[in-house]
Amino acid sequence: MRKRATAKQVAEAAGVSKWTVIRAFTPGASITEESKRKVLEMAAALNYTPNLLARSLATNSTRQVAVFVDDFANPQKLPFLETLTEQLQAAGLVAMLININNHFDHVNALLHADQRQVDAIILFGTAFRDETLTDLQLGHGMPQMFVLARDSQIDGVPAVVCDAELALRDIVRHLHERGYRRPGFMSGAAALSTALRRRQHYVEFWAEHGIQNISLLSADRYSADAGAASVRAYLASTPADERVDVLMCENDILALGAMDEIRGNFGLKIPEDIAIVGFDNYELGGSYGYGLTTYEQPREEMVRAVVGMIKGTVEPETVTLPGRLVVRSST
């Protein structure tokens, strides 16, 4: 194999400066088409590709973005991650995926990201204590942080979220118009600083319709098994004439597990005995076997906003975007 050329060698061969070579390989950099063409042709002839590590030392930017994720059991994470990595790569950035778990918590993750000098950190649906920032004492040089798909209650950390208030108002209005009067709500894994606020708005909007008694269920994580276990415990302990007539689950994965349990082990009909609502519009929920009524988050727009903040083309501030109600046979 031929030895890889340097930027200086390409510059000399193309008759341009070294900085012109660097600009030719920098997305969005100011350079004439003729200069870029000459540089790229000579780079191909000399087997040159830019050394990103060396460039990061010169520009003080690694173009890496750390993405923290803590609930991989939720398959709805995958479409978001696909969109996020696609848009980051289109912007010349690369995602560093960090799994938050019992053995590698936020403290370890923050230190890991800081040591690798990432340009930004995205808290993707993770529960995060703002006291952690103080405890770490990483200083003012710490990468900018953003919260994606949950509210941020951390000072100075903007969030990009689906408008939970609008979403739950639309959902409750739909359910009330369909005649449901004994609502329930199933929460997922408890969140700390980055809450969803879906249960809060669900309770508030039912109260506006004069209904104060909301049955509250909980699951220990976002998974179909957890949704099934939660509704199983509820149905087993609640007389048939006292059960809810509609159950909203905090996301679609919980809802799908609940639906399988309701029909499979208890022989109940959906929506005749219990109607079900989810959140996220996960693809499987739209299949004939489920027909799940849900709420779709504006995934593309949410990711575009957070990537714009990282690039500096969008003001870094909390952004709340509207989604849409998707009505199917489960209600």
Rank of each mutant, 00 (worst) to 15 (best):
T6E: 02
A29W: 15
K38Q: 09
S35E: 05
E41F: 08
E34K: 11
Q9M: 14
A44N: 11
Y48C: 00
A5N: 11
L46S: 04
E12V: 14
K36V: 00
A13I: 08
Y48I: 00
A43K: 06
L53F: 13
A14S: 09
A24I: 02
E41S: 02
N47A: 11
R23W: 01
E34L: 09
T49W: 06
N51G: 00
T32A: 10
I31Y: 15
I22G: 11
R55F: 08
R4S: 15
A11C: 06
G28H: 13
I22S: 14
Q9E: 15
T6S: 15
I31A: 12
P27M: 14
A43R: 04
N47L: 09
T26L: 08
T6C: 03
V39W: 13
L53P: 00
L40F: 06
E33Q: 13
S17Y: 07
M42S: 02
W19V: 03
I31Q: 09
A7E: 06
A44L: 05
A43W: 13
V21W: 01
A54P: 14
T26D: 08
K36S: 12
M42F: 10
R23T: 02
T20L: 12
A11V: 02
A29K: 12
S35F: 13
Y48S: 00
R37T: 03
A54M: 07
T20E: 03
T6Q: 08
R23M: 08
S17I: 02
A29N: 05
T49D: 01
S35L: 08
A13Q: 08
A14H: 09
E33W: 06
V21Y: 01
Q9T: 10
T6P: 07
K38N: 11
T32P: 13
E12G: 10
R37C: 06
P50H: 07
L52A: 12
E34N: 06
K36D: 05
A24P: 04
L52W: 00
I22Q: 12
F25H: 01
S17W: 07
P27K: 09
V10A: 01
R37V: 00
A29R: 12
R4K: 13
R37Y: 04
A11F: 01
E33S: 13
N47E: 15
R23L: 10
P27Y: 15
